[in-house]
Simulated scan of single mutants.
Amino acid sequence: MQPSDARILRGAAIPTAGVGVGAVLIGLLAAGAKGAFAAALAAVVVIAFYSISALAVAWASKISSQTMMLAALASYVVKILAVMVLVTTMDGVSAWDTAVFGWTVVGLALTWIAAEFRVAMQRGRPYIDEPENVLDRSP
């Protein structure tokens, strides 16, 4: 993993974990112990899914930029589908508050995306590196 990839992963995981702690407290106030458990479970799910996705993209970036883009798109689709399946299959579960779980997943996913975007914008270097042997076709 490149240092820039590690910085993006840390820059997204730490704020998401912080918001996750806040979500656990809000879940506790809103729905008691079941709400706190649901928020904690949602935090674990979001951080795990997004971390695995970031690791997959970092691995693919070592191969080529096209592979990296394919890995990013594929991991996004798989991640969204997996969270959708998880939320719909756990709709009738009574061990935790499903509404708190669903809203926490949405909130933490948006937090991760915003934090990742913030770190990426602070890097100050372009996402696409132009090949060195490109012919200059300017008039």
Rank of each mutant, 00 (worst) to 15 (best):
N133Y: 13
A95V: 14
I52N: 05
L110N: 01
A74M: 09
A114H: 03
M68I: 00
G107Y: 06
M121R: 15
G22R: 03
D97L: 05
P131R: 12
D97S: 07
L110V: 09
G20M: 04
M121F: 12
E116S: 11
I63N: 08
A38K: 00
W96E: 01
M84E: 13
D136V: 06
V24L: 12
F117G: 07
M121Q: 14
A36F: 05
G27N: 06
M84F: 15
D97I: 04
R137W: 12
A56H: 02
S65T: 11
T67Y: 10
A82E: 04
G35M: 01
A109F: 13
E116C: 06
V83S: 05
A56S: 09
Q122H: 08
A115W: 01
V105R: 00
G35E: 02
Q2D: 15
V100M: 07
E132G: 12
K34M: 03
T98W: 11
I80H: 04
L9Y: 02
V77Y: 02
P139K: 06
G124C: 08
A71P: 07
S51L: 06
A31T: 00
R7C: 06
I128E: 09
I63G: 02
V24T: 11
D97F: 03
G102L: 13
V134I: 11
S53W: 03
A56L: 10
A6E: 09
A17N: 10
T67D: 12
F101Y: 10
L86S: 09
V77S: 08
A56R: 11
A120K: 14
W112T: 11
F117V: 01
E116I: 00
Q2T: 15
S138R: 13
I47Y: 07
I63Q: 08
L41I: 06
N133I: 12
S94K: 15
L28F: 13
T16S: 05
A82T: 10
A13E: 03
E132H: 13
L73V: 11
R118Y: 14
Q2R: 15
P3Q: 14
Y76D: 10
L9S: 08
V119W: 00
P3I: 12
R123W: 07
A12R: 05
L108H: 02
G107T: 11
K62N: 11
K79S: 10
A54V: 03
P3K: 10
V21D: 02
V106H: 02
D91L: 13
A31I: 01
I26N: 02
L108T: 04
F37T: 14
A12K: 04
R137G: 07
V119H: 03
V105M: 00
R137L: 15
R10W: 15
A6L: 15
G32H: 04
P131I: 02
L29A: 15
G107D: 03
E130S: 12
G102A: 15
A38M: 03
A12H: 03
V24H: 08
E132S: 12
L9W: 08
T16K: 02
V45I: 13
I47W: 07
